[in-house]
């Protein structure tokens, strides 16, 4: 359960990107935040990922204020969080297979059949032939897809995806969205942000019966899409 009250963020430049925002996301929900660039979507996701402290307000995840956790508690909490952030990168000296397996090892989730599972996932993403390639041999779109797979492979309790479709062609974006829906169906809470309004219609069709909360960031406040 994610809850935010009176969430405000003022950047050092004086720009207020979040203004007394409220947020309540029950466990297992799928929330999509739509908005133009520079409206504070990334800031909000970074806050939820424990990387950007709010200027004021309370942010609780599973009834804990994540900014009052000790370093050890924070890392424990982060081990259950998957992130698809634009500033994350792949390890350049590891193969694609190793990059994905690595996160399982770090999170203590590696086990038998791991290679096969990664292989299947890469095949579904159309990257089966690139398993043994190094990141430098992949296009930026393919790299972003691998980053997304790395964040999803361990079935995180919470997945934060900041503009995950950026740099992906329509087909790859659709594959990724399908992965996100499957992950949500398996129980993960997903919060994604995107500025690609054109994607909205297609995504709504793909979601089908799946419940997605569509939210817009409007003047620093989170507003349900129907009201926006």
């Amino acid at each position: 359960m994610i809850q935010a009250f009176h969430l405000t963020k003022v950047h050092s430049s004086g720009v207020k990107v979040l203004d007394d925002a409220y947020l309540s996301i029950p466990e297992g929900n799928f929330v999509a935040i739509i908005g133009e660039s520079r409206t504070g979507k990334s800031t909000l996701l970074k806050m939820l990922g424990g990387e950007e402290k709010p200027t004021s307000g309370v942010l609780r995840i599973d009834h804990q204020d994540i900014y009052s956790l000790s370093t050890q508690e924070k890392h424990q909490w982060l081990s259950e969080v998957g992130m698809i952030f634009p500033d994350l990168r792949l390890f350049p000296d590891k193969t694609i297979q190793e990059n994905i397996a690595f996160v399982l090892q770090v999170k203590g989730a590696s086990g038998e059949g791991q290679e096969e599972a990664i292989g299947k996932l890469l095949n579904k993403a159309g990257l089966g032939s690139k398993a043994q390639a190094k990141p430098v041999d992949l296009s930026s779109g393919e790299q972003r897809m691998v980053l997304a797979l790395r964040a999803m492979i361990f079935r995180p309790k919470l997945l934060l995806a900041d503009d995950p479709f950026q740099g992906l062609d329509e087909k790859a974006a659709a594959v990724l969205f399908k992965f996100l829906l499957e992950l949500n169906k398996a129980g993960s809470t997903i919060i994604l942000s995107t500025q690609q309004m054109s994607f909205l219609g297609e995504a709504k069709k793909m979601a089908g019966e799946a419940t997605i909360q569509w939210v817009q960031l409007d003047q620093g406040k989170l507003v349900p899409m129907e009201e926006a």
Binding site: G49, E51, T71, Q72, H75, Q76, W77, L78, S79, E80, V81, M83, L88, R89, F91, V103, V106, K107
Partner: peptide
């Protein structure tokens, strides 16, 4: 240092 940040953001424990 970037590897260190990545590990931290993945929630790797201090000893790791």
């Amino acid at each position: 240092r970037e590897d260190m940040v990545l590990l931290s953001r993945m929630g790797a424990p201090t000893w790791m």
